[in-house]
Structures are given as C-alpha cells and as structure tokens.
Computed example of a mutant assay.
Amino acid sequence: MTTQELIDNFRNAVVQIATKTGTGTGFFLKDFGLIVTNNHVVKDNWKVTIKGRNFDKQLSRVVFADEKYDLAFITPPENTEMPQVRLGAYSALHDGDTVIAIGHPYGLNYTATQGVVSRIDRVHSGLKYIQIDAAINPGNSGGPLVNSHGEIVGVNTFIIKGGDNLGFALPVDDLKQALDQYVPLRGQTAVRCPSCTSLVTAQNIEGGQYCSNCGTRISLPGLEEENKEAVVSGIAKTIEDVLEKLGKNKELARSGYNFWEVEEGSAKIRINYNPDTYFIISDAFLCSIPKEQIAATYEFLLKANASLKGMLFSLNGQNIVLSSLIYDLDLTVESGEKAFRQLFEKADYYDDILIKQYGCIRILEEQ
C-alpha cells in the first residue's frame, strides 16, 4: 500500500469531534461498531458532536470512558457506509519504523503527517507509550497512528509542550483490551475503573457511586444525565439562547470552547467569544472576489459599508467577509437576537447578490 492509498483509505474513517470545551479526532472501527477517541477529548461530556467526510454534523453518545488509559468510545452515525480499517500488532512495531499520524489539528479538516517511531516503549505516568516524531498538535488527540501497511498501531494521545515533535501514542494492544472488555456490553454506558480496570455499569455500580470490585468512587451518568445537554453559563449561554431563538441547534453549532458555526442559506457564520478582549465577533464568510468586475465589486462593498449599521464588509485574502462586533456587557438575548438575525439575513442576501450580479466565486469547501 502506497502512502497516498493509505491516507485515502482513512479519509472516511476519521471523524471530527467537538464539545463545549474543545475539539479532537476519532476513528471508526467497523468490526466493533464504535468510534474510538481519547477520554480527554470528550471528558465530562456524554453527548458530543461528530462530523465526517460522508455524514453531516450530528450529536452522538459517549458509551465508554477510561480515564487511566485515556480512551473513550462513541456511537457511530446510523445508516452511513464507513470503510474498513484494521488494527495492527504492537509487537511487530520497532524503533525507526515509518508511521503516519492522522487527525484534525486545530480543527483543520483531515491532516496526515509522516514520521518515525523514536521509541516503542517510552514509559510515562506508569503507562507505556509509542514515542513518535510525526508532527501532532492540539486537535490530533484521539486520531489513529498508522504503520506502512495501513494498520492502526496506536492512538495519538499527547505531546510535550515546547518539545520538537515529541508526540506519544497509546499502543494498540491497550485499545484491543478495552474493546474486548466493552464489546459484550455494547450499547450500555460503561466506565472503566481507574484502580482495578473493571467495567462499571448501571447494573453493577455499588450504591450508585462505587466500583463493586474495589470500592473506587466512580462517576457514572444515569440515563437522564446522559441525555441532558451540556451546561454552559455566562456569555456562552446567552449566545446559545440567541441561537436557539433563531431556530439554530445550539448543540450542533458548538465547534469548541466559545466557538460556534452555523449556516444561513449559502453563507457560513462563525461566532467567537474572546473573554480577554470582551468582544463577540461574528464573521459571515460569503464568496471570493471575481476575476472580472473587481472595481465594480469593491465599489459595491464600499457603498454597502456606508449604509450598514453594526456590520462591516472586509476581505480575508480573496474572501469577502461580513462581520459584526458586540461588546459582551451589551449582550442580552434581545440585543443578540436582533444583531445575529440581521447578520444572518444580510449575509445570505449579499452572498446571493455578489455571486449573481458581480460574478463572485463561491468559496471552495473542504470535503
């Protein structure tokens, strides 16, 4: 299998995961009917959003959590054809072997980096990891580490900050053990005890909060808690209340910590709250400057800026962006609804005009 064939084979198996606190990567194992990721990617979230190349963004349940080995399993999308990817053998891995780390660093869609195994048995916090020099970054967590035969040999787990390509992956044998332990209970929600590694479920938890095998305190969600939406507060809650009033699914809109994405017609709007600057910045990415009628397009945008209130056209490279800025202390559900509604409506309206009347080019979307 060539490197290109290997990378192409994983495109539909690797998924993006987002919670109210961040983003990460997961990969689908067809033989087990589960999406694998790191526990720290989904920590304290029993519902997350997932998105893949061949399915739209949707909510999914976390059904297995393992704090010690930093593993979690998520239910896959229904009625979606996913490719077959294989688990390899950790015992066949050697120092110097070529590996490829696949994931979504910083939320970027599908990135593969090649490197070598620096050491197959680096011990950290009492566990064995595969040390690699393939570049991995925040957002890669939970993605597959793949050998030259296209087999998964590890789960990309963490990096050392300030290090030069010092990445670490959990060996695939640890993943296999977790899968073998959970699969007989598939469909139930289970937590692996960090002390004795027994599986704790609603059927065997002692007193509702203790591992029945060793007595370690376990946080296991009940059905109500599992289905309860993630709790947000402050400005983030106000933003989500506004989105809900505007008919948007606030949970699906979540794309990370204080970051949301929604679509209105042909326009994609990104909403970002930065507590350090006290502003909520909403950017509607429309279309790109045309090859012809450039002067006429600029004139149209400048005239529009003169008439717009609370919004402004700008250019991000060749892309036309309509933005609004709200000071966080001025944000209420009422003021936010008015500002967001105006931005959503104007974004779709201007995108249509710029494309049809000025020949602007639709922004290329990643597949």
Rank of each mutant, 00 (worst) to 15 (best):
201 T>W: 07
223 L>S: 12
166 L>A: 09
305 N>I: 07
348 D>T: 06
300 F>M: 07
76 P>N: 10
26 G>I: 07
144 P>Q: 04
7 I>V: 14
10 F>L: 00
139 G>M: 02
93 L>S: 05
101 A>V: 05
324 S>G: 15
129 Y>Q: 00
208 G>W: 09
109 N>D: 14
157 T>I: 01
1 M>I: 11
6 L>M: 10
128 K>Q: 13
350 Y>H: 14
62 V>Q: 00
136 I>K: 04
244 E>W: 11
320 I>G: 07
311 M>T: 02
103 G>W: 08
350 Y>C: 10
49 T>R: 12
298 Y>Q: 08
262 V>H: 11
96 G>E: 00
318 Q>I: 06
83 P>C: 11
59 L>W: 00
161 K>G: 14
140 N>L: 00
216 T>N: 13
80 T>H: 00
65 A>F: 04
130 I>M: 02
18 A>N: 12
285 F>C: 01
252 L>C: 09
173 D>A: 07
281 I>E: 13
33 G>Y: 06
200 V>C: 09
326 I>Q: 11
97 D>P: 01
332 T>L: 02
21 T>P: 00
94 H>I: 03
145 L>Q: 05
271 I>L: 13
150 G>Y: 14
154 G>N: 03
219 S>E: 14
122 R>P: 03
15 V>W: 09
174 D>A: 15
288 S>W: 03
189 T>M: 10
88 G>I: 01
80 T>N: 08
274 N>R: 05
172 V>A: 11
278 Y>Q: 14
46 W>Y: 12
52 G>M: 09
224 E>C: 07
325 L>R: 15
135 A>D: 06
187 G>K: 10
226 E>M: 14
332 T>S: 13
267 A>L: 04
330 D>A: 15
290 P>R: 06
75 T>S: 13
199 L>W: 04
186 R>H: 11
193 C>E: 05
136 I>T: 10
228 K>F: 11
12 N>M: 10
182 Y>G: 02
202 A>P: 01
221 P>R: 09
32 F>E: 15
178 A>H: 08
115 G>P: 03
329 L>E: 14
106 Y>M: 11
9 N>I: 05
169 A>Q: 06
351 D>K: 15
296 A>N: 08
236 A>I: 08
74 I>N: 01
332 T>F: 07
26 G>D: 04
367 Q>I: 13
25 T>I: 06
113 T>M: 02
316 N>A: 14
331 L>W: 02
362 R>Q: 14
17 I>E: 05
195 S>V: 15
247 G>K: 07
121 D>G: 10
19 T>E: 00
360 C>N: 02
313 F>C: 07
54 N>Y: 04
249 N>I: 00
187 G>D: 13
34 L>V: 15
266 S>P: 01
124 H>Q: 14
201 T>D: 06
221 P>N: 06
183 V>W: 14
318 Q>W: 01
